[in-house]
């Protein structure tokens, strides 16, 4: 394997890693904070992608400069409003009820798919992938894919800052750890839940906006995001940042490696899922659980 092949493999790993991180964060936040699994996560992403694509085309038709970045902001905002409406009408009744929430959000997912189809048909026109590409030896890689890697890392850093360095983050973590005590200390926990759900929706919308040029826009396109996000959340566990980061790395590596070695996307997918099965067997509460118990033992030995 020459240096170019190695670089190509590295780019493919980054590609898988960025996809897993971005597909997962929105789901992970809602799961970590509220203990509900949002099976309509893929359709949340799709709302962002559709809003981005449709507003991009109307902006571009009007000749507005920077149509794509503006359209992406629109995509995120639309998804946040969508999340807010669903939180108020459906989700807030389901917090902490894992199985009920799965059934309800699955229904939302099915309804969304059909509504998108009725409203916009079987596909809408795509956005071309912006920017050129970096070329190395016989290979090329679009700049845009590298931008996605940067975006994934920026999202993780942003969340770390939000949850550890801000007042909101402290209240949010207090709500997760002990809802009753947080309430007695004057934290409006219902509001915390609502805000967190909207942030989670916004992140899903951001993922949709960023991946809009990379995907064919059809009503089923959300499913592809959900499966990988779901697996990553289960392997990662409840901690949003550590879990998502480590699980995306752990799953992205076999995916890219096997895909490359066997020249088959299918084998890459199989390898990723096998690693997920083994990981869940060895770490039933995900990577987060492992990190927690490691921290605890270190604390004990320090005492």
């Amino acid at each position: 394997m020459g240096p170019y092949e190695l670089l190509s493999l590295f780019f493919q790993f980054l590609d898988s890693f960025a996809f897993l991180v971005l597909a997962t964060v929105g789901l992970a936040i809602i799961f970590g904070m509220m203990g509900v699994i949002n099976l309509a996560h893929g359709e949340f992403i799709l709302v962002g992608a559709y809003a981005t694509t449709l507003s991009f085309h109307s902006l571009a038709d009007l000749g507005v400069p920077l149509a794509l970045p503006i359209a992406m902001v629109v995509g995120v905002l639309v998804t946040m409003v969508f999340g807010l409406v669903l939180e108020v009408t459906v989700m807030r009744r389901l917090y902490g009820r894992l199985l009920d929430s799965m059934v309800a959000t699955w229904a939302i997912s099915l309804i969304m798919i059909q509504l998108l189809r009725i409203q916009f048909g079987n596909s809408i026109d795509n956005i071309a992938i912006p920017g050129g590409n970096v070329s190395f030896g016989p290979y090329t890689n679009p700049y845009y894919e590298l931008f996605l890697v940067g975006a994934a890392i920026a999202v993780l850093i942003g969340l770390y800052w939000l949850f550890t360095r801000t007042d909101f983050g402290m209240r949010a973590r207090a709500t997760i750890q002990d809802k009753e005590t947080a309430r007695s200390m004057g934290v409006d926990t219902d509001r915390m839940y609502m805000t967190t759900f909207v942030i989670g929706s916004g992140l899903a919308g951001l993922t949709g906006a960023l991946y809009a040029p990379m995907q064919s826009m059809s009503p089923e396109a959300g499913t592809g995001f959900l499966v990988e996000a779901f697996v990553t959340v289960v392997v990662g566990g409840t901690s949003v940042i550590v879990g998502t980061l480590l699980a995306s790395g752990l799953l992205g590596l076999p995916k890219a490696g096997f895909e490359y070695a066997f020249n088959s996307q299918l084998i890459g997918q199989v390898a990723m899922l096998v690693v997920a099965i083994v990981a869940i067997r060895l770490m039933p509460s995900g990577i987060t659980g492992l990190v927690e118990s490691w921290r605890q033992s270190r604390r004990e030995s320090n005492d």
Binding site: F11, Y139, N141, T223, Y260, S264, Q265
Partner: peptide, 24 residues
Amino acid sequence: VGEEYIPLESSSFSSTINNIQGED
């Protein structure tokens, strides 16, 4: 010089494209 069968639900092709570029 190369053959790849791609799952119907797949929509990511960067590895496929690199493989094609490698075989030229």
